[in-house]
């Protein structure tokens, strides 16, 4: 199994390596799916804090992984995106419409617990809100999905 996956209660914590090559992507997605099945996980947290370059291929990986994870009844949370990475993703024109983005692993934990208790989900942010919070300047039409 891909060594970067840890289980924490109903959550899977995936440490995304800084340079993700095509084969790694496929292996990682397969390992995530296997782990969801094995542990009956509800939430998959992709920890991006090691990632310093996120291109459109990476964006496609996030999107397709979240779709597959959803099909298995779990949800993806993206944590730890560096400011420079968020900025470039926005400028590149990438949107992560159905993916929750939180600032760090603490926030991901908090969101997971709230969900488990059925209480509010107010910490959920989308990538564009995150960019707003960083007060970035950007072109509006960048966000058209």
């Amino acid at each position: 199994m891909f060594t970067g996956i840890q289980k924490l209660e109903k959550m899977l914590l995936v440490s995304v390596p800084s340079d993700l090559l095509d084969d790694d992507v496929i292996r990682m997605r397969r390992d995530i799916l296997r782990a969801i099945r094995e542990y009956d996980s509800d939430i998959v947290v992709l920890d991006f804090h090691l990632v310093d370059i996120c291109d459109s291929f990476f964006g496609r990986f996030i999107y397709s992984t979240s779709k597959t994870v959803e099909l298995m009844g779990a949800r993806i949370i993206i944590a730890g995106l560096q400011d420079a990475v968020i900025e470039t993703m926005v400028e590149l024109g990438m949107t992560l419409p159905e993916v929750d983005v939180v600032i760090d692993l603490d926030e991901a934990m908090r969101l997971t617990r709230k969900r488990a208790n059925g209480t509010s989900t107010d910490v959920i942010t989308k990538i564009d809100e995150m960019a707003n919070a960083l007060s970035l300047e950007f072109d509006d039409n960048v966000f058209r999905a």
């Binding site: 459109s56 964006g59 496609r60 400028e91 590149l92 024109g93 072109d139 960048v142």
Partner: peptide, 20 residues
């Protein structure tokens, strides 16, 4: 053009690079 692709990409490589 944003999101135009001849493969199965996001169609953002060229237009996005120009913005970056």
């Amino acid at each position: 053009t944003d999101h135009w692709t001849s493969s199965r990409g996001l169609g953002l490589g060229l237009s996005g690079s120009r913005r970056l």
